Simulated assay, not measured.
Amino acid sequence: MSSPLAAAALHHAVLTAHGFRCWCTGQCQRPHKKGGGRCEAEHDGWTSKRGRLIHLIAAPADLLTPTLTAVTLPARELRAWCPDCYDHTRRAQRKTAATSAVPEQDGLFDLPESQAAVRGLL
């Protein structure tokens, strides 16, 4: 079984918790029909689609977690991701974050009525 050069014990703990299989259940915007709703990619397995070896990675469920925070998370807060699901999910989370509503800023330059009246704006 392959493992990363750093944090091999943590990586192994995460993969063991997820049965050495990608954790994704559709977060990547794909249905994963062959795997019963869960990605069928297994660690050190081969993809039939592209014919390449899969190495799962350990990362948080929220892939927009800052790196400095993510590296301090314990194994129970990390998930096993295949490279394809990781990339697609991260892209989807970035897109959602970019299009989500910005907190209300309409009142940023509003003056209380008393000040507006003093300045002749009402």
Rank of each mutant, 00 (worst) to 15 (best):
A92E: 11
T99A: 10
A58E: 04
G26I: 06
T69Y: 11
E77S: 09
T69S: 11
H12R: 10
G19P: 02
A59M: 07
A92P: 05
P4G: 03
L64M: 00
L122Y: 15
K49T: 12
Q29L: 07
P112N: 14
Y86L: 05
L121W: 15
L10P: 03
D44Q: 14
H11S: 03
A9L: 06
L121P: 07
A41V: 06
A98W: 13
G26L: 06
G120L: 02
A75M: 00
A58Y: 02
L73C: 04
L53A: 09
W46C: 11
L111E: 10
A61R: 01
H11V: 01
P74Q: 07
P4Y: 05
Q115C: 06
L68Y: 14
I57R: 03
I57G: 03
K49A: 12
L56F: 05
P103I: 02
G120R: 00
M1T: 10
G51N: 14
L108A: 12
C39W: 00
R21S: 08
E113D: 15
A9I: 02
C28T: 05
Q93F: 02
A97Y: 00
L64E: 01
R91T: 11
Y86H: 09
T25G: 13
C39K: 00
T16E: 15
L68W: 14
P103F: 04
G120W: 04
Q93M: 07
I57L: 05
L111H: 06
S114A: 12
R94G: 05
H12L: 11
Q29Y: 06
G36Y: 09
S2P: 14
P66D: 11
Q93H: 01
S2N: 14
G51E: 13
C82V: 00
R91S: 07
A17G: 13
I54Y: 06
S114K: 07
S114H: 11
R94C: 10
A17E: 11
R76F: 15
